[in-house]
Design a protein around this nucleic acid. Structure first.
Lengths: 200, 200, 200, 200
DNA sequence: GACTAAACGAGACGGTACGTCGAGTCTTTGT
DNA sequence: ACAAAGACTCGACGTACCGTCTCGTTTAGTC
C-alpha cells in the first residue's frame, strides 16, 4: 500500500544485475546469431526465443517489437569503436578505414543490419538513432583528416565531409546497390580518383 | 538426327490481347499506386487486388510472387529513358543528372523501389536484373563524359566509372542512409569537390 | 475486372460442398470432442486445430472467435430435436422430458455448453441466439400440455409456462448451482409437488 | 506411543494486525469494485492490484489464485444475513424473499458472483463452500414455512424443499439462462402457480 | 460462327510470424 | 530476515499476409 504522498511518477528503477542481465545478454546474443544465420528476412522473434532460451513474451516485454530488438542488437555492434588508423599518409589511412567498412558491409551481420536500416520508414524514432550513429562515425574519420592537415596533406580548415561521403557512398553503392565486390585494388584506385591531386 | 520425340506437352499458346492485357495494365498501375501510397512496407497484394479490381488469385497466376510483381512494376518505371543533358559543360551536365536521381530517390515511388531492391537477398535472379538496369544507366552517363572529352574537359580514354560511382554513391548515402536532404547547392559543391581540378 | 455498375452488396455466397463441408464438419466435431474431454475451461482453439487437422487460422477465418466456434458447435447439439413423449399421462410425460434434460446437463458436453452460455456477457448477439433455442424447446414442451388438455389433465387454455419454468428451473438449480444429483425418484416427487393437485 | 518427531516446520503464525489487515481489506474491497465494474470476465488480478495499491505478488501470497480471491470476496457478500420477512402470509413472505434474490442476481456483483460460481469445475474444494452457503440460505427460508405451519398455511412436518427449489430455480432460470427480466407481478403469479392450492 | 482451352472470378485453406493479455512463479533489492 | 517490486515463464488469443487449391465462368483465338 503506497502511503507516501509522492505523487510524482514512481520511475521504476530498472534492474541491472543477475537474471535480468543474463536474459538480456542471451537475447541480444541470440539476435546477432540469428541475423548472421538467416539474415534480416528470415529473422524471427520465435527463433531468438528458442536460441536464447528466453520466452518469447519476455522478449516482447523488454523490446517493444521485432525491430526494436534488432535495433538494439545491431547498435551494440556499431557502437563499438573502430580504431582510427595512423599510417603516416592520408591515402593509406583512408584505404584502411574504407576497407574496414567494406568488411563490415560484406559480413552477414553488417548486411543484415543495413537491410534493417533500409527497411525503416522514412522518418521514425529509429532513424534518429541511425543518424546519431553516423555522426559518431564521421567524427572519427575527421580525425584522420586533422592529422593529414598537420602533415600538409589536406588544406587546413577545409571541411572534408563531401569527400568522405563520396568515398563511403561509392562503396555503399557498389556493395548494396550494384552488388559488385570491392577489392583492395579498387579501393586504392577510388581514393586516388576522388582525392584532389593537390593532396600529394 | 531424329526429331525429339515431341513431348506431347502441347506448349500452351499464350493469350495476349483483350482481357489479359487489360488485367495486366490494371494490376501494374495499381501496384505503382499502392507503392506510392503505402510504401514498400505496407504494400500488400490484397490491396493491389482491391484497387485494380483483379482477383488476388489472378495476380498470383501471372506474377509468381509479391516481389515479382513489384519488380516488374518498378522496372517499367526505371526502364523509361532518362534524358541525357547537354549543356556545354561537364559540371552542369553532372549536376543535372544527379538532381534527376535525387528527385527519383526522394519520390515515394523511387523510395519504395529502392527499399524493395535492398530487401532482395544477396544473390537471386532479381539482383541480376537490378544489375542490368544499373549498367544501362551508367552507359547513359558515359555519354556525358564522352562529350566532355571532345570539349577537352575530361581526359580522352580515361574511365570515369569511379567518379560516377562516387557522385551517385554520395547522394545515395545521404538520402538513403544518412537520411538527410540533398539541395541543389549541395550538388554543385559535391561535383566541384570530387571532379579533378584539372577538369577545368 | 468488375465492370458491372451493380452497387448492391455482393453478398458472398457461402460454399457448401466438398472441402469446405469436410473442414467444417471436422472442426465442429473436434470442438465437441474437446469440450467433452476438457470442458469449457481447458478448451483451446489450438487443440481443436490439432484434433481436426484444420489449421488454426482457418478456424479463425470461419468462426470469428473461440466463443463463436463453441456457440455453433453446441447449438448444433441443442438444435437436434428432442422426442416429445406421449405416455398417456401428463406426469409421466413431464418426468420423461425432465429426465432427458437431466441427462443432458449431467453429460460433459451439456455441462460445458451450459458453462459457456453462462460465461456470455449479459447482452450480446449470442444471448439472442440462446434465447431462441429456449423458445424452441419450450414450444415442444407445450405440446405435452396440449395433449394433457385433451385428456382433461390440464385446464384448457391455461398457460403452463410458469409450471414449466419451475420444473426446469428446479433441476437446473440442483445440478448447476447446488451441485447435487437428481435421481428419478426426485423427479417424480418434484412433479408431484409442483403440479396442481387438481391435475389428477 | 512415541511423540511424532515434531516436524520442525515451524507453523508460520499468520499476522493479522496492522498492515496485514489493512492490505486484506483494501484488496477485498478492490476485488468487489472490479467485479462490479468489469464483471467476472474482464476481472484481472492486475486491476485489483492497481486499484488497491497492493502489489500483485502480495495478493498471490495471501490468496492462492485469482479464483480464491474472488471466492473470498463474494462470500463476504453472501455471508451477510438476509432478513427473514414475517408479513403474516406465506405468499407474501415468499414473494418478499424471492424479490430479494432477484435483486441480488440482477445486480452487477451478484451476476459476477454467479458467473464465477458457474465457472468452477464440477467438483472442487470451492464447490463445497458454495454448497454450504446454499444450505445456510435454505435454512433461513425454512423459517418462513415453519411460521406458515403455525398459521395453518402449510402442512405441519411437510418438507418444503421441493417447492423452495422450484421457486428459486424458476427465477434463476429466467434471469441466468433465459435472460429475461423478472417483475413483481411475475413473482406473484409464480408463487400462486407453484404453491399448492390447499395452502390457502 | 462454333468450339476449345487459356485466363479469370471467387471462396476457402495451409502456413508463418507478430504482437497482446492474463495467470502465476521466481529472484533481486531495499528496509 | 523478510516482504515489496520487478522480471520471467507459460499458455492462449486473435490478426495480417503470403501463397495454394479447387471450383465454375468468361473469353480469346482458331477452325
Amino acid at each position: 500500500m503506497k502511503k507516501q504522498p509522492e505523487e510524482d511518477v514512481p520511475e521504476p528503477r530498472r534492474r541491472t544485475g543477475g537474471r535480468s542481465a543474463r536474459v538480456q545478454a542471451a537475447v541480444l546474443g541470440a539476435t546477432m546469431d540469428e541475423l548472421k544465420a538467416h539474415g534480416y528476412d528470415g529473422f524471427s522473434v520465435a527463433a531468438v526465443a528458442a536460441r536464447s532460451g528466453v520466452h518469447e513474451t519476455s522478449i516482447y516485454r523488454r523490446w517493444k517489437s521485432r525491430d526494436g530488438l534488432i535495433l538494439e542488437a545491431t547498435f551494440a555492434l556499431f557502437a563499438q569503436d573502430i580504431p582510427i588508423p595512423d599510417r603516416g599518409s592520408l591515402r593509406e589511412d583512408l584505404v584502411n578505414l574504407l576497407s574496414g567498412a567494406v568488411r563490415q558491409l560484406s559480413s552477414p551481420i553488417g548486411w543484415a543490419a543495413t537491410q534493417f536500416a533500409m527497411a525503416l520508414p522514412r522518418e521514425s524514432e529509429m532513424t534518429q538513432e541511425v543518424r546519431q550513429q553516423w555522426a559518431k562515425r564521421f567524427a572519427s574519420v575527421r580525425e584522420v583528416f586533422d592529422r593529414a592537415s598537420l602533415r600538409g596533406e589536406w588544406p587546413v580548415g577545409k571541411n572534408p565531409q563531401d569527400i568522405i561521403e563520396s568515398l563511403v557512398g561509392a562503396i555503399y553503392l557498389r556493395i548494396l546497390h550494384l552488388r559488385e565486390p570491392v577489392t583492395a585494388a579498387h579501393l586504392k584506385r577510388l581514393v586516388e580518383a576522388v582525392l584532389p591531386a593537390t593532396c600529394k
